[in-house]
Simulated scan of single mutants.
Amino acid sequence: MAEITAALVKELREKSGAGMMDCKKALIENNGDVEAAIDWLRTKGMMAAAKKSGRAATEGLVGVVTSGTSGAMLEVNAETDFVARNDQFRAYVRTATEIALGNDGDLEAVRKSGFPGESRTVEEQLTNLIATIGENMSLRRSLSLSVDQGVVASYVHNTIEDGLGKIGVLVALKSTAPAEKLVETARKIAMHVAATNPQSLTEADLDPALVAREREVLVEQARESGKPDNIIEKMIEGRIRKYYEEVCLVKQIYVIDGESRIEQVVEKLAKDLGTPVELVAFARFGLGEGLEKKEDDFAAEVAAMSGTN
């Protein structure tokens, strides 16, 4: 068998654009023959996927699944919104989300899990899908919520089909009350979360850096008023309380009735059911949030293609 040197692997990487380990495996499978290794990578879909890996993937789908006292979400990104309507892509996201539920939302465990009906892992199945559909895709993030007693309910906004859409939310209510008595309110709170995108559950959970940054802005604004320092301090504290009401879920005004705070909604549910109910967690995935979206310059693209630029 031919020796698989680092130089040989490098050569194949440069020609194919595939990953180092894939190139090494291809060379081993083809006795060090670079051209045969390229064909091997092509048949496996690895080279096509590698060539697409540098393209921005900010579209796609968020998958959401619940089962009694637990739920999971998974975001899979693609380059265009059209892929979200592809049956193969939707089936992949749906299956991968179910796998996330079985792995407590651990993304690395999801990547390495076997994909049902295939001799590939979840990550390898995505590589194959990239080659098939012709767009770059990525498994971006996943998580799960669970309670010992109670319910985890979900809501999906801009739904493509059941459990798949552009915004996914999970809400966990802890209680000994029957699940059917909890799930309606939990789902409505999930709808609220989709609309308001709170930054934390309570004041105590809020990132101190966010509070500090908000306080700095408020201080500068207050100083411009020319008021005395003791008055400024009171102004700032009042505005910080208002800030908490805007970004902490339990303090927000419930969008369903426009009057109650979320904590009051939960208190009323507990009173109606005659048993304690606690809102213990929530999670929200907005498709592509935080990713830099590519802005296409169509005029520049045409000019480049025509050789006039």
Rank of each mutant, 00 (worst) to 15 (best):
A194Y: 11
A18G: 01
K112I: 04
A179I: 05
G105L: 13
E289N: 09
V110S: 06
D229H: 06
R261C: 02
M47G: 12
G17L: 05
V211Y: 11
L210E: 15
K268C: 02
I130V: 14
E180P: 00
E246D: 14
E29A: 15
E79T: 00
Q264T: 10
G288D: 13
L182Y: 12
L287Y: 12
K242Q: 08
L201R: 14
A100R: 15
A78G: 07
E216N: 10
E35P: 01
M20S: 09
P228L: 13
S200L: 07
L291S: 12
S113A: 15
S154W: 07
W40A: 03
V93Y: 14
D205V: 02
G17T: 00
V110I: 12
K188I: 06
E214T: 01
Q199P: 03
D39F: 08
T176C: 07
F89M: 06
L143D: 14
G54Y: 07
A84N: 02
R284S: 03
V152G: 06
V171G: 13
L201E: 14
D22T: 01
G102R: 10
A84M: 01
V183H: 10
P228R: 15
E135C: 01
S16L: 02
E123T: 02
R187T: 14
L173W: 05
I167S: 02
A300E: 14
P208Y: 09
K251W: 02
R187N: 07
Y243V: 00
M191Y: 04
T275A: 11
M47A: 15
V280W: 10
A300D: 13
C248G: 06
I160D: 10
E246I: 05
A304W: 09
V83A: 11
D104T: 03
E98M: 10
I240N: 04
G274R: 01
N30F: 08
R55N: 03
G68V: 08
G102T: 03
L182M: 11
E29M: 10
L210V: 15
L164H: 07
A131Q: 09
Q149W: 03
T202A: 11
R213C: 00
E289M: 03
T95W: 04
E118T: 05
I262M: 09
L173P: 00
G63P: 01
F282I: 08
K293R: 14
M21E: 08
F89S: 05
G226L: 08
E292F: 01
E75K: 06
A26C: 01
E123N: 10
K166M: 05
E245M: 09
L279T: 08
A212E: 12
P198M: 11
A72F: 05
G63A: 08
V265G: 06
C23H: 06
E267H: 14
E11D: 12
A96D: 02
K234D: 14
I38G: 02
A36S: 13
A96S: 08
K24V: 05
K271Y: 01
E301H: 06
F298L: 06
E237C: 01
D22C: 00
R261S: 13
D39Q: 15
W40R: 03
E246K: 14
I99S: 07
R187H: 10
T97G: 09
E245I: 00
A299Q: 09
L269M: 13
G32E: 04
E246S: 10
A195E: 02
L249F: 11
V302T: 00
R141C: 02
R42H: 07
E180S: 13
L273D: 08
E79V: 00
